[in-house]
Amino acid sequence: MLYVKVKTEDGEELVLEVEGMTEDEIREELAKAGFKIEEIEVYEVEP
């Protein structure tokens, strides 16, 4: 499983499960949803 931890400019932290997306695609999708991203951390969790 691939997850991203996202910190927004307003200090909110989100953890999202993503599969088959690049970091650029993740940033693009979050921007479309109205999030202003300060930091993204991508990590993989073994089942």
Rank of each mutant, 00 (worst) to 15 (best):
E25V: 04
E12A: 12
V15Y: 12
V4S: 00
E29Y: 15
E9G: 10
V4L: 03
T8G: 10
D10S: 12
V6E: 00
E12W: 14
E23Y: 14
E25N: 05
E44H: 13
L14A: 03
E19I: 14
T22P: 02
K7H: 09
I26D: 00
D24Q: 12
I26T: 01
K32P: 00
K36M: 10
V6I: 12
E29R: 08
Y43L: 10
E39W: 15
E19S: 14
E25R: 06
L30H: 00
V45F: 12
D10N: 11
F35M: 04
E29W: 15
A33Y: 15
R27T: 03
E19R: 10
V4E: 00
Y3R: 06
E19Y: 14
E13W: 13
E29K: 12
E25A: 07
P47D: 08
E9C: 05
A31Y: 10
Y3K: 07
E44P: 09
E23C: 13
I26V: 08
K5I: 09
E19F: 15
E19Q: 14
R27C: 05
V15H: 08
R27H: 04
K32V: 05
A33G: 04
K36L: 08
G34L: 02
E25S: 05
V45W: 11
L16W: 11
E17T: 12
V45P: 08
E12N: 11
I40E: 01
M1F: 11
E28Q: 11
L14E: 01
D10H: 09
L14R: 05
E13T: 13
V42A: 04
L30P: 00
K7T: 13
L14T: 04
V15P: 00
I26C: 04
I26Y: 01
V18F: 15
G11C: 09
F35W: 11
D24S: 12
I37D: 08
D24V: 12
K7A: 04
L16E: 00
E38I: 15
K7S: 05
K36R: 10
I37R: 09
E12S: 12
R27I: 09
K5Y: 09
G11Y: 02
K32D: 03
E23I: 15
E13Q: 07
E17F: 15
E46C: 08
V42I: 15
K5G: 02
V18H: 01
K7P: 04
L30M: 06
E39S: 15
V6D: 00
V42M: 09
R27L: 08
I40Y: 08
D24W: 12
K36C: 08
Y43N: 04
E44M: 12
P47Q: 09
D10R: 08
I37G: 05
V42W: 14
M21N: 05
L2G: 04
V18M: 11
F35A: 02
E39D: 13
G34E: 02
I37W: 10
K36N: 10
M1R: 14
I37F: 08
V18W: 08
K7E: 04
E19T: 15
G20L: 06
E23A: 13
E23G: 06
E44V: 11
I40H: 01
E28N: 08
E9W: 08
E12M: 14
K5F: 07
R27Q: 03
L14P: 00
L30T: 01
T22Q: 03
G34N: 03
I40G: 02
L30W: 04
E28A: 13
K5S: 04
T8C: 15
V6Q: 00
V6K: 00
D24G: 09
A31P: 01
G34F: 02
T8A: 03
E13N: 05
I26H: 00
M1T: 13
L2S: 10
L14M: 11
G34V: 01
E41S: 10
L14W: 11
M21R: 14
F35S: 01
V15F: 13
Y43F: 13
E29T: 12
E9M: 11
K36S: 08
E17Y: 15
L30G: 01
V15C: 15
E38S: 12
E39Y: 14
